[in-house]
Design a protein around this nucleic acid. Structure first.
Lengths: 355, 355
DNA sequence: TTGTAGGCGTTATCAC
DNA sequence: GTGATAACGCCTACAA
């Protein structure tokens, strides 16, 4: 293996200047002569010299690296999130180190050691939990640039950039009701590992109860965010289908599973029952029927997360939690105005609220 | 910000030993007393000390980091690939630095500078092209641990771990014929940026011609690997549908687009026409109809890529290109034996080969 | 505006 | 088996 590149000293010697001069030229320091700087840059470009980021980081304790922690769980949103984070980071001249961590906490410490050593500048956590070693340090009062993203954070000394899941849950319910769907059920992701499923489930329940439904009459099936949950709910929902006009699912994947499951039982979506999802993953528009769902502002989340971390790093300032807006996208699986088409004999009597 | 951790010197002082002793204990060097080593490890664990990877890498020119270069293009396989690579790397105690590069070559040099400086040990390239700065160095005769993955490599001084796309293309054709489908067309991804589309297209053509079809009678629509290509092909294929029993698509996404497109024109898959995809992305089994396709051995690719790089790094040995096997998965969109059900009047007269 | 010197936290080489 | 010492390649007071 031949990996001997020039060092600053080589460039300096060749140009008859000192290492400092080269260093200053390359880091466009203000205290450097325009002419010498030009000479140095020219030479550097000519021989393909690049500053050794390792040595530089060791000295300055700034590596221009961002850590990103994602859960190993299958989720179609993470790839998108990663890409937007990378793009934003790249624009600010940061690179990404990635770790897929087991799920809740216990992450690979090797990754975080980069941060503690100064190689990495901050960490974006998409798992909902601060890894143990970070939590310990924060508890000790140390401060590290970190942010939760796409999930409500587990601690409030770290900002969190996430969808307003509760608000979105209520809005889907409200919107479906406005479109004429009267009796609405849910297949939730509340049994999964994240708090998001609970938020969406609670939002649904409270919106329905405020709307006049009886808490104990609500049709709810609980599971994780995965496809299998929807599939497993098929009989439960099919049996309740004469009491329902629409079903809100905790995720798009659940919705896919439910729609396919119902189809296998002869229940057609949206003809017999409308189904709405959550997230607007790439496939939602290509599924058949295309999915009515809530769009997550992934792009915005990625950009904001990076911006906040970089702000914390470079200005040493602190940053606040951010709750992002959402958008309900009406498609075929629960078409706008679709509830009006419900045959009269299926029209629903909403139970009066009990105390 | 409070980020002062202990250094080796601190541990050493506290234990009344030298830095060397601490270093040796922590890197389980053979030349160290069992007792002292135990003391050091205990102390290190007690105070939560971890070796500074930056300083270590600067000295040893080994950072235990692997670069991964992925294209920014949407492709449902990359997330899976990344995860398997990360898992394999993690088991060998490497971490991942990721760069989404624009597409063909021009990548972010910052990323590769980590490798050139010794921080990163090798690079896994999933874009099909060696980035410029790497190519230059290789041309100069330097050697860097690198491997192409999931795509035939652009240079043969770097190993490539990929599916036998040509073989797989022929096998899909052969398999469909064996299942009774007589007249087969293709919607290819050959106009896309990678060579893979071409390989699959050529395989199809040659298999068909050897099978007795006339080259100029073959029904082929060319596009990229994306959903839109399938959708755009819908009218072309629908018009030719009375001359076809099945269509092979260059990717699963194309197949989804085609199936949806045909449905919009009243052509039902597989009743009127069978459709097969390529890749077996996660969604292939959940689509309706579920997709007959060729499974890429993503897991195997990820593991093999990491194993090869690590081998190159640690044993300084060289490694050879690897062509992986595949598997045709028969599902609803082109069911096994489905070709037999073709009504007799649609049976096909295969043109004799012309010279 | 430029040069000199010292150190960032490790590991490797050499003694003992 | 253990300890002193010199790099690794860069940045940054401080001095000129």
């Amino acid at each position: 293996m031949n990996r001997k590149s020039d060092r600053m000293a080589d460039i300096a010697r060749r140009l008859g200047v000192s290492k400092s001069t080269v260093s200053r030229s390359l880091s466009d320091s203000p205290e450097i002569g325009k002419a010498t700087k030009a000479r140095v840059l020219a030479e550097a470009r000519a021989v393909g010299y690049a500053v050794n980021p390792l040595a530089s980081a060791l000295k300055t304790r700034r590596g221009r690296i961002l850590l990103v922690l994602v859960p190993r769980i299958e989720n179609f949103l993470f790839p998108m999130l990663l890409r937007t984070i990378e793009r934003a980071a790249s624009e600010m001249e940061y690179t990404l180190m990635i770790g897929y961590v087991a799920g809740d906490s216990r992450t690979d410490d090797r990754l975080l050691d980069f941060m503690y050593s100064g190689a990495a500048d901050g960490v974006i956590i998409a798992t909902g939990f601060a890894p143990d070693t970070l939590a310990e340090r924060l508890d000790r009062g140390e401060m590290w640039p970190a942010a939760f993203v796409m999930t409500p954070g587990a601690r409030n000394d770290i900002p969190s950039i996430a969808l307003d899941d509760y608000g979105a849950g209520r809005e889907v319910y409200r919107r479906l009701r406005a479109e004429g769907y009267k009796r609405i059920g849910m297949v939730s992701g509340a049994s999964g590992p994240t708090a998001v499923g609970q938020l969406r489930r609670n939002a649904f329940i409270e919106a329905a109860v405020e709307d006049g439904a009886a808490r104990e009459d609500l049709v709810i099936f609980d599971g994780s965010f995965r496809y299998e949950t929807g599939w497993n709910a098929r009989e439960f929902i099919a049996k309740a289908s004469d009491r329902l006009d629409a079903v809100i699912c905790g995720s798009d994947e659940i919705a896919f599973g439910l729609i396919n499951g119902l189809r296998s039982l002869g229940v057609s979506v949206p003809r017999d029952l409308a189904v709405a999802g959550f997230d607007d993953i790439l496939f939602a528009r290509h599924f058949s029927p295309s999915l009515t769902t809530v769009r997550q502002p992934i792009e915005e989340m990625g950009r904001l997360a990076v911006a906040k971390i970089v702000e914390m790093v470079e200005r040493k300032s602190w940053s606040a939690t951010e709750m992002l807006g959402f958008e309900v996208v009406m498609r075929e699986s629960a078409p706008a105005g679709g509830g009006e088409a419900t045959p009269p004999e299926r029209s629903h009597k909403i139970s009066a609220p009990r105390r």
